[in-house]
Amino acid sequence: MEFKVYQKELELQSRGWIPTFHDVSKEIIEIVEASGVKNGTVCISSHHTTCSVMIQECSHDVDSFDIEYLQHDLLDIMRKMIPDFEKEHQYRHPGPVHTQFGRYVNEPGDFTSMNTDGHLRSVFFGRSETMAIKDGVLDGGEFAHVYFVDWDHVRARRRQLNVTVMGTSDNVENRKWNNGEVINTLRKYTDEEKAFDVHYTLQQQR
Rank of each mutant, 00 (worst) to 15 (best):
K4H: 06
E129T: 09
Q71L: 14
V146D: 06
G36K: 07
D23G: 02
F143I: 03
E27M: 01
K134Q: 10
G102H: 07
G141E: 02
D152N: 06
A144L: 02
V172A: 04
V105M: 10
K87N: 12
E193G: 01
Q205T: 15
S169I: 05
A156F: 03
H72S: 08
S64Q: 13
M166H: 02
D170C: 04
S113A: 11
G40L: 05
N179R: 07
Y6R: 10
K134F: 13
H22T: 01
Y200L: 13
S122K: 09
F111C: 02
V53K: 08
C43P: 06
V163Q: 08
P19L: 14
M54H: 14
T190E: 15
D197I: 06
D84F: 10
E129I: 05
H98T: 13
F21K: 01
W151T: 04
N115L: 00
F148T: 01
V24E: 09
F21Q: 02
D135H: 06
E193L: 05
E33D: 11
M166N: 01
A144R: 03
I44P: 04
T20D: 06
T20S: 11
G102N: 07
I28Y: 03
F85S: 04
K188Q: 14
V165I: 10
R155L: 06
Q13N: 10
I183E: 10
H98F: 12
